[in-house]
């Protein structure tokens, strides 16, 4: 009996500390020191409307935008309330079928082989905000044509948007698709958010 009583009291105390006080203090410190990050690294337009988060990818399919990685989230691509991957195994015929469909779509849009793997496979989270620099570079001719812009101008924007490995060797170089597309909208002198 005494053992059960001790267990009950100790459980209650440790639950209050680890499940109440600890997250509360973390929240307090986080909001004070890193308010934007704690709230989701949101991107706003000039009118203060939320356009998205710089960490969460969005779907783009218009030729004038850079396209993100394919997304396998439930219901619709880049559904941020249902993160997840396709779970397709390496020898599943469905995987080969999907990849070859995506390659056909890229070819139809004027993107030529070879295709960087990340541009034709779906990400683990379904919300990957990045593509590899290679996957951005192969899209430049298509985007330039759709926007009536010079390829070199777009290429210089893409190069400026490449994020390097952390400390020069951790992770992979990458381009944030949403930020790149917003940047392109700015370059055209259009208010982003308008369609």
């Amino acid at each position: 009996m005494r053992r059960i009583k001790t267990a009950l009291i100790l459980f209650a105390l440790l639950a209050i500390i680890t499940g109440g006080i600890y997250p509360a203090i973390v929240t307090l410190v986080a909001r004070t020191a890193f308010p934007a990050a704690a709230r989701g690294s949101l991107i706003f337009d000039a009118g203060g409307n939320v356009l998205g988060s710089s960490l969460i990818g969005q779907q783009f399919s218009d030729a004038k935008y850079f396209w993100p990685r394919p997304s396998s989230t439930a219901d619709h691509p880049y559904n941020a309330m249902a993160s997840g991957g396709s779970q397709l195994g390496p020898t599943n015929p469905e995987l080969a079928r999907e990849v070859s469909e995506r390659i056909d779509a890229l070819k139809a849009a004027g993107v030529s082989a070879p295709f960087p793997s990340d541009l034709v496979t779906s990400s683990a989270s379904g919300l990957d905000p990045h593509i590899s620099p290679e996957a951005a570079l192969v899209q430049i001719p298509r985007v330039a044509k759709a926007r009536g812009m010079n390829e070199d101008d777009i290429r210089s924007i893409v190069f400026r948007m490449i994020e390097d490995r952390a400390l020069g060797f951790i992770g992979a170089p990458r381009v944030n698709v949403l930020q790149l597309n917003i940047k392109l909208g700015d370059m055209e002198g259009k208010a982003y958010g308008k369609r």
Binding site: V99, P116, T121, S123, A124, S125, S132, I170
Partner: peptide, 22 residues
């Protein structure tokens, strides 16, 4: 994945992986 290489995609299979991790 040789199956994906055969279709014209190059590099490691990125199915179910995230770009930033490397």
């Amino acid at each position: 994945n040789p199956i994906l290489h055969g279709l014209g995609a190059y590099g490691p299979s990125m199915e179910g992986k995230e770009v930033r991790m490397g």
